[in-house]
Design a protein around this nucleic acid. Structure first.
Lengths: 172, 172
DNA sequence: TATTGTTATACTCTATAACTATA
DNA sequence: TATAGTTATAGAGTATAACAATA
């Protein structure tokens, strides 16, 4: 099993790109998480859920759609949704067209919290990530990473449990 | 308190760069973590510790140096070091010049595990991150992110507990 | 039979504070 | 008094598997 052919070590350039990406994103995420916790008592995932809902036209989404976009397991989303609902930041109601599904709605309190937290969030991102980058840099960075994102979205996890609703091909 | 001046919302270009960076790094980290767990029963932090040690000339480092480079709290590093030591992957011995300090050494078993896990690690990184990027892209990406990393390293967390060994300025 | 979502559960990781020992 | 590291403890987050209800 596990026959990884052609796995030469990474050369310094490849290693460098990988490392700097991981370090930058780690520090940024850590800083963002600290701010969200301090300022709104929110985890990053919770903020993603609220922000995603408040950004959507209807302010609502199916649980599965949320799980796919935000979190890696359904039970994890249920856990987070329970917390958000207990705080009155979202509400859940059955979907009219498919009674198995649950529609998650952001409440006024949820929108208010997002609005309250957003400035600080923006401030952290601006200070840490955006400050050293010119407009041109941002454009180039996005142009480089967007294909990687698309590639990642379509590349199957291979030995991992499928993130979407596929049947599980046993392994490999 | 908390007077964030000039926090306009991010424009689409800034948002796009931020989002794509976070999504790419999240997926990559998740995939890497799954591989390390499946292939070597290692967390990402544990791998970082081992890889850092095996990369260093002496195969050893002080606990504090490791904590600074890898983890955000000292107790967190102690926890991970306990696990690694229990598996015989590292050893700890008092530093000769400063008896408060502990020198962490990677063992032969530790090096062996890194060697065993590395090909799969490289494979995951190559497949997910590197594949859609040309050599030129890698160079540009690193050139863009390296200053961000340096900026982040020197930017104080502001409202967060200092990551290094500074005195804690109460807040703000 | 497959899918949506929840529940029960177990486990990993992280952080804070108190503590010991050395500088 | 400050620093290095450990310990005790508590809490958050995640995943797996079993489950209920609907398609």
């Amino acid at each position: 099993m596990r026959v990884p052919r052609r796995v030469r070590a990474l050369d310094p350039q490849q290693l460098g790109a990988y490392f700097v990406l991981m370090e930058v994103s780690s520090i940024l995420r850590h800083a963002v998480e600290q701010h969200l916790r301090a300022d709104g008592d929110l985890s990053y995932v919770q903020f993603q859920i609220l922000a995603g809902l408040s950004g959507s036209a209807t302010g609502s989404q199916r649980m599965t759609a949320l799980a796919d976009s935000v979190v890696y397991s359904r039970s994890g989303l249920t856990y987070q949704a329970d917390l958000l609902e207990a705080r009155g930041l979202i509400s859940r109601s059955p979907a009219p067209d498919d009674e198995r599904s649950i529609i998650v709605n952001i409440t006024e309190a949820g929108r208010a919290l997002v609005s309250r937290v957003l400035p600080g969030h923006v401030e952290v991102v601006s200070r840490l990530l955006l400050e050293p980058l010119s407009r041109k840099d941002l454009e180039v960075l996005t142009r480089l990473l967007a294909p990687v994102r698309d590639h990642m979205r379509t590349t199957p996890p291979r030995s991992a449990a499928p993130r979407r609703r596929n049947k599980a091909a046993p392994d490999g």
